[in-house]
């Protein structure tokens, strides 16, 4: 047993897992509000990170200004995607809408590679000190920041849905579109807002990952990892998505530990979540907290 290594990996897993949780949360937000499985979630994350990187390095904007600016951009961008691309698709079969998001993800992915190249770019350092000492463990400052930001995002989201008027409107729409509309909620603007918030939240996660690891097209892998997380938590449960994300993050790192210490298969880290995904789909398809679909005729 290599305890120090294990603890390091667990901390790592917790940090990455909360980030997965944040992205999964924004994925579930779109699914709940608009019934669209968004395959372009990872690209939203990537766009946010690249925009922030451009502001910081090309325009020399300080971080405290650059981050909000890129979030504002992503907010507008989310609305734009919904209005231009997805609004005309309302009423089409749901599988067409999903295929549209697959197309979107291809376009964004390739366009970003075209603009920024394929090589990862380092992010300008945000914190002066490299590591902080917590209970005798050396933890990188960015990790702490990442954890704090993720938790703040989750709390903010919880408040938004519990207490704010718009969040309530969104929940009502998710529950039943027709009833919500008859009560005076603009379903159109709820849809647009769902995309806007989802894009913004993903962008925060994107910037956080970028600060830790630098920006590269590999970031959009977070968009793929969202699926195991969201399925584990239940496709329509925001809380479940967060928990699912943390579990997947921890699981990845535990898989890496088992792999490096005992099995030596290599690369187990990458693939373990997908095996978990298949197993969950077989034994508990609606996840931990998802609502079971009961159809009445």
């Amino acid at each position: 047993m290599n305890t120090a290594f294990l603890i390091q990996l667990l901390v790592n897993g917790l940090v990455v897992g909360t980030l997965y949780g944040v992205v999964a949360m924004s994925f579930v937000l779109i699914y709940k509000a608009t019934q669209v499985v968004n395959f372009a979630q990872g690209e939203l994350l990537l766009i946010g990170a690249w925009v922030c990187w451009t502001l910081l390095t090309k325009f020399q904007v300080p971080f405290w200004a650059g981050m909000p600016l890129s979030l504002i951009f992503m907010f507008a961008f989310g609305i734009a995607i919904q209005v231009v691309i997805l609004r005309p698709m309302i009423g089409e079969p749901i599988i067409s809408v999903i295929m549209v998001t697959i197309g979107l993800s291809t376009v964004f992915q390739a366009a970003l590679k075209w603009i920024y190249g394929v090589n990862p770019q380092p992010f300008p350092p945000v914190f002066s000190s490299k590591a902080v000492d917590i209970f005798g463990l050396q933890i990188q400052t960015v990790y702490v920041m990442s954890l704090v930001v993720s938790v703040l995002m989750m709390l903010g989201m919880a408040w938004f849905f519990k207490a704010s008027k718009y969040g309530l409107a969104m929940r009502a729409t998710a529950f039943n579109q027709q009833v919500a509309q008859s009560l005076g909620i603009s379903v159109k603007s709820v849809f647009a807002m769902a995309w806007a918030i989802s894009a913004t939240v993903s962008a925060v996660a994107g910037v956080v990952v970028a600060v830790v690891n630098g920006v590269s097209s590999g970031l959009s892998a977070y968009g793929i990892k969202v699926f195991p997380a969201a399925i584990l938590g239940g496709l329509d449960s925001v809380g479940g998505a967060v928990l699912g994300g943390i579990i997947i993050g921890l699981l990845e790192n535990i898989a890496q530990y088992v792999d490096s210490q005992y099995l030596h298969w290599g690369n187990l880290y990458e693939i373990a979540p997908f095996y978990v995904l298949i197993i969950i789909l077989m034994i508990k398809p609606y996840g931990l907290f998802g609502t079971k679909d009961i159809e009445r005729i």
Binding site: F227, N267, Y275, L277, L281, P285
Partner: peptide, 30 residues
Amino acid sequence: FGIPAARLKGLYLVIATLAAQYILLDFFSR
């Protein structure tokens, strides 16, 4: 890989096939 599909509605199958794609490619490299 289609077994989950049999139990579930359309949306879930696309996620199962995504997993299938990654698992198969990982298998080939191993």
